[in-house]
Design a protein around this nucleic acid. Structure first.
Lengths: 211, 211, 211, 211
DNA sequence: CATGAATGAGTCTTCATTCAT
DNA sequence: GATGAATGAAGACTCATTCAT
């Protein structure tokens, strides 16, 4: 096997683990099953990863890296258009980008949430990621304002609470329960997302606008 | 041992299980530890419950029962005062009652969320409970309106999406991460709750008022 | 409960145990199940019997007692008619009595055989019972002969081997597998028994006659 | 470890299980003890076998395979000499081969009988094996006759009953209780076998000859 | 006699992890 | 890189038996 194959093998292990962790939880997933479903020998998993925990850590790190990437791309390093939209209160493109990302990553998000509710966890990944995103958001908005010569100030603590509980968590919830909602109410992802966006707009975003 | 003791023993097992499940997750909790911490013989747990799963089911059922109880008490069967408040858009007492309940029940709520994100779960408890609560809410509001000879109508699907994702889930999030937030930001429960309420008011509740 | 009921309760426990032991083996049977099926409290079983083993011992003792009873009644203490038959080589009534008994007792016989094949068992019940019966048989034949002023002599060891392996064990086998044979070959107990008797007659009994 | 070792390990587990099952019964045997006595890690047993039951099944299958092998070798595919013997009514070599086999396999035969008397067992192994052997026997005799231009006919049902209860079961009994008999009556295997053969000859085989 | 509650000592089975090749 | 074999440490669940009333 050449390097490309090796990388591919490791990736296959990771995505299989992601799938299984999201389906049955981290504790519920068996390394045996990951091996079987990934089509590799179990010992090989331990060749690539020191432990089952390290697989999870790798997935988490990758998630955080991607989030940073998306944040930078979609906000801070966003096009002048995006920045205009933000100032004009048209968050639609931003939210859409975010929802795309979240929906695509819903498997690992489920894992993160599943792990975060265990009290044993040190600093919950959710708060870690939430704070990360919100900080990025603040920065992005500030930058947008500044690029127009405007000033943006905010009560950090108040802002955080609002963003985390009424902005970030609803979006996360969409990633967690969107699938199920579609099934129960026989609604397409597109339609549900539109409904969600309307709700989000008239609640969370309305507050943004109002400020 | 008389009947009272037996009931007490079973209750002790249940609350110990609730505690451990919430701390390390359902899979992470050991029946041995539940027994040890509850001060009972392990076999006794299996005398009262067919399996570890049945302990969880019992906790879930009890939660749902309590929620129904609270709902009825605080809304549909509420005092005229409560009903007046609803019509006047003063949801504070209602929300407070709810947050009290949720904060008190945060241990089991964490378990529910932890289990709900596993795809294997049939109909996620969260959606079950969420729908239950929202239906109760609708009924309560309708009843409040009708008692004043007013009419209350709502687009059910739209209402559900809004209530679930931007109303129910933020409240759940408060139960999930309130503790951690307090620790990280060195803020008391009372203060955090006030902040949360203000955020909730200017986002979710504002939409209610606006309708 | 008066004494009659108490006896009845104990009997019910015994017959339920006999049934379960024969169905799933001694090890496979649960005291819990005996209690449930007998409709008594589990602790009550321990009031009547010191242990699960003692239930088995009681069943075994009762079996041996009954065998002795039957033997005496049907052979040694048999009517002159029976004794005539024996001398004339007409074992039919004797064999019939025996098969009746065995078929009726097939449940406990299954238990005895099941236990006897465990090497750990001290002296196998089977050999104990087998020897008991064969000794009785010898005595009965001798007595029949003597009552007619005839003499009956036998090479004990040779007789024992023949009686045990080609006489006693086929009869036991009938008790063990008669039920199943009926089911598989769709044959009534009456017909199977007739076939068995013919086979037994032309093999084992023929040798008796020939002597 | 190479493949040869692996096979050897699995075999060791099987023969240890066979030994223990025959000593204390299937239910009485502990997987822990099998592991300890086979000198392997307990988990390794579950690497090779899905469950304790599967160990038993494997032993049973192997027994049936061996029986088929012996049958073919000793009868249908037997030498002309063997076939001559059968026609001449000299079953000694055949019976000897059979008794050798049975005595060698007495451990697993005890297990089979022990399990077969449990009503829960589907189609009792004993009847399965018994029928298998008897069918093979019929075939072998028929073939011997035909090779000499002779005709062999038989009433199947009658033949089966005779062979099973007065031929097969006494032989089985010898495997079950031969050991014990030797101990009780202080007789060598060789002598007991001779006695058994004489008894078998003048009962079961005499009927064969007479036909 | 009778019972619900309680227990100690297993018993099978699982699982993350490692070893030898 | 890759694999079949092997292992230590638990884990859920069971069961005969006893206790208190």
């Amino acid at each position: 096997m050449n390097k490309r194959d090796a990388v591919e093998t490791k990736t296959r292990i990771l995505s299989t683990a992601e799938k299984l962790f999201s389906e049955v939880g981290f504790d519920g997933a068996r390394v045996d099953d990951i091996a079987k479903e990934a089509g590799v020998n179990k010992a090989l998993i331990y060749y690539y990863f020191k432990s089952k925990d390290e697989i999870l850590d790798t997935l988490f790190s990758a998630l955080i890296d991607e989030i940073k990437q998306v944040l930078i791309q979609k906000t801070v390093a966003g096009t002048p258009e995006i920045q205009d939209n933000i100032i004009n209160g048209d968050y639609r493109p931003l939210i859409d980008a975010f929802m795309d990302f979240m929906f695509r990553k819903r498997k690992i998000i489920k894992i993160v949430i599943g792990e975060s509710v265990k009290a044993s966890t040190k600093l919950s990944m959710v708060m870690k990621v939430g704070t990360l995103i919100i900080d990025g958001e603040i920065e992005s908005i500030r930058k947008a304002y500044e690029s127009k010569g405007l000033h943006f100030s905010v009560n950090k603590q108040e802002f955080l609470v609002t963003e985390f509980f009424t902005g970030f968590m609803p979006l996360i919830s969409y990633a967690l329960y969107g699938d199920e909602w579609q099934k129960i109410y026989h609604i397409s992802e597109k339609d549900l997302r539109e409904q969600f966006y309307q709700s989000f707009k008239k609640t969370h975003l309305a507050a943004h606008l109002g400020e």
